[in-house]
Design a protein around this nucleic acid. Structure first.
Lengths: 206, 206
DNA sequence: ACCTGAACACCGTTCAAGT
DNA sequence: ACCTGAACACCGTTCAAGT
C-alpha cells in the first residue's frame, strides 16, 4: 500500500529546503570554517542542483544573514533561559548574561563567527539588528538595577554596558581563535568574565 | 649616457614586488574588506601578470600571513614607542599598552582584521606566534610589577593578563565592526579600556 | 632569477526552460 | 511554485615557456 515512492527526502524536491540550507551551512562552517562555505557545496550536500538555493536566498550573503539571524535569536533565548534559572539579584543576573554569552559563543562557534565576523554592514537593519539591540538593552537595564542596588559603581550605564560586553566578547573571541593558553577550560573562561563584573562593584567606604 | 631604459618602475619587473604585494593587499583590505582581496586584482594593480605573485608567495594564504606578520611587528613597535613616552609607574604602563592596542586596531584595521581574523591555525608557528607571545609577556610582566607595587589586585598574572587583553580586544573588535554607539569616539573607547584597568586596583583596607 | 600565457578546476550568479 | 542545465565572468593555482 505504501507504493515505491522514496521516503519523502530523496524525492524531486525537499519540502523544507530553506531550513535545510541554513542547517547545512552551519554544519560546514563549524567543520571547515566560514571560507569553506560555498553555495554549490551546500546544494550538493542536500542533493539539489547548484541553483536551487536561489529559490530561497537572493545570494550567498543572504544565506549567511539567515544564519546570523538564527544565531541572534538563539543567543537571546539562551540568555533568557539562563536568567530564569537564577534569582533576582541584579549583579548575579548581570554575571549570568556574561556567562551565557561566552557559553553560547563556545557552543555555537559557527553562528558566532557569522554574527560577529567581517560582514560590512548588512546587520544594521531589520530583525537581526533588533535582536542585538534587545540583548544590549537587557544588559544596560541590569546595570542600572545594580547601580540602584548599590552593587555596581556609578557611571553612565551605556558606557558600563559596553565595557561588560567588550569583556565577554573579547574573551570569547580570543578563545575561539585559539589564542589563549590551552590550559584554560571553558568554565575558567566564564569565571574570568564573572570575576571582572565583580571587580566593578563599588569601593567600600573608608 | 643614461640610455632609454624606463625609470626602473615601469620596467619588465618591479624591483620590490614582494613588498609592493603586501602594501597593495593591505590597501585593498582596508578599502573593501578581506573578502575583496584576490591575488589577481592585487597583481593587476601592480601591473604584473596574475601569476607573478607566486614568485614571492606560495599561496594567497602566505600573502595574508605576511600581512599579519607585518601587523604584529608594527603593533609591538607601537607599544614600545608608547611605553618609552610614559613614566615608570607600572599601572600607567599597563594602561598604555591597552591604549596602544586599541589605537593600533583603529589605525590599521586591515592588519588587525588579518591578524585576528578567522585564519584556522596558520599563526601558531614561526615569527608571527613569537611576536604575539612577546606582546603578551610584556603584559603579564607589568601585571606582576603592579601587584608588587600594590596597584593591582593579587591573583594569577596570566589570568589577569588574559582579562586585560580580552577587554582591549573586545572593545576594539566591537568598535571596528560598527557595533558600538556611533557617539563613541576613539578617545572615549581608549578611556573605557583605561578605566577598567583602574577598576582592577586593590580594594582599600577598611 | 623572474615573469608570462594558457589551462584546469572551482566559484557566485543569471536565465531560459522544464514539471 | 519549485527545480534544472547551460552559460558567464570570475577565482586560486599549475606549468611549460620565454628573457
Amino acid at each position: 500500500m505504501a507504493g515505491r515512492r522514496p521516503r519523502v527526502k530523496t524525492a524531486y524536491h525537499h519540502g523544507n529546503l530553506r531550513n535545510d540550507l541554513v542547517t547545512a551551512a552551519v554544519e560546514i562552517i563549524r567543520k571547515s570554517g566560514p571560507d569553506a562555505l560555498t553555495l554549490r557545496v551546500v546544494a550538493q550536500r542536500l542533493g539539489v542542483s547548484q541553483t536551487a538555493p536561489y529559490r530561497h536566498f537572493a545570494s550567498k550573503e543572504a544565506l549567511l544573514t539567515a544564519v546570523a539571524a538564527e544565531g541572534f535569536t538563539s543567543l537571546l533565548t539562551s540568555i533568557h533561559r539562563a536568567l530564569d534559572a537564577v534569582g533576582a539579584d541584579p549583579i548575579v543576573r548581570l554575571q549570568t548574561i556574561g556567562k551565557s554569552y561566552i557559553r553560547f559563543a563556545l557552543a555555537w562557534p559557527a553562528h558566532f563567527a557569522v554574527m560577529y565576523g567581517p560582514r560590512p554592514t548588512e546587520f544594521s537593519v531589520g530583525a537581526v539588528a533588533e535582536a542585538g539591540r534587545a540583548a544590549f538593552s537587557l544588559l544596560t537595564e541590569l546595570v542600572v538595577a545594580c547601580q540602584s542596588a548599590g552593587t555596581l559603581r556609578a557611571g553612565n550605564p551605556t558606557r558600563m554596558g559596553v565595557q561588560i560586553w567588550g569583556i565577554m566578547h573579547g574573551l570569547a573571541t580570543l578563545y575561539l581563535h585559539g589564542l589563549l593558553p590551552r590550559s584554560l577550560s571553558e568554565a575558567e573562561l566564564e569565571a574570568l568574565g564573572e570575576e571582572i563584573v565583580a571587580f566593578l562593584r563599588p569601593l567600600p567606604h573608608i
